[in-house]
């Protein structure tokens, strides 16, 4: 629910300075799959708040009708032909694996089904 409050403040007029940006930092860390202590989460949350306050400047520019840019240069249709190239040797593929077994990468059991 804290997040909903935040969204409103983001949309609201004062988009920089004094704006309390509320971040559910524990949720973000889980999304990013990084195991951080409460103390670390608290510190990083605070730092991100400061950075986001500055980053929120982007909301000050009027962008009505402006298309977003995801790629700096106007290019389209970069393809490759459907041709097979030799794959890596299996030993090469596995050589950097922290753990391998019978030609597979080995990992601890998973909690989640996909």
């Amino acid at each position: 629910m804290g997040r909903r409050v935040c969204m409103e403040s983001v949309r609201g007029a004062p988009t920089i300075g004094g704006m309390a940006i509320d971040i559910d930092i524990a949720y973000v860390a889980r999304l990013a799959r990084i195991d951080l202590s409460d103390e670390e989460l608290e510190r990083i949350g605070r730092q991100l708040g400061g950075i986001l306050e500055h980053a929120a400047l982007v909301q000050q520019l009027p962008t009505e009708g402006v298309e977003p840019t995801s790629h700096p240069l106007p290019m389209v249709n970069a393809f490759r032909p459907d041709r097979v190239v030799p794959p890596l040797e299996r030993d090469t593929a596995l050589t950097q694996a922290p753990q391998a077994e019978d030609g597979y990468f080995r990992v601890p059991p998973t909690l989640e089904a996909e």
Partner: peptide, 10 residues
């Protein structure tokens, strides 16, 4: 954030 930043990029 991200969407707006991409527009600023434009």
């Amino acid at each position: 954030f991200y969407g707006q930043a991409q527009k600023v990029r434009t």
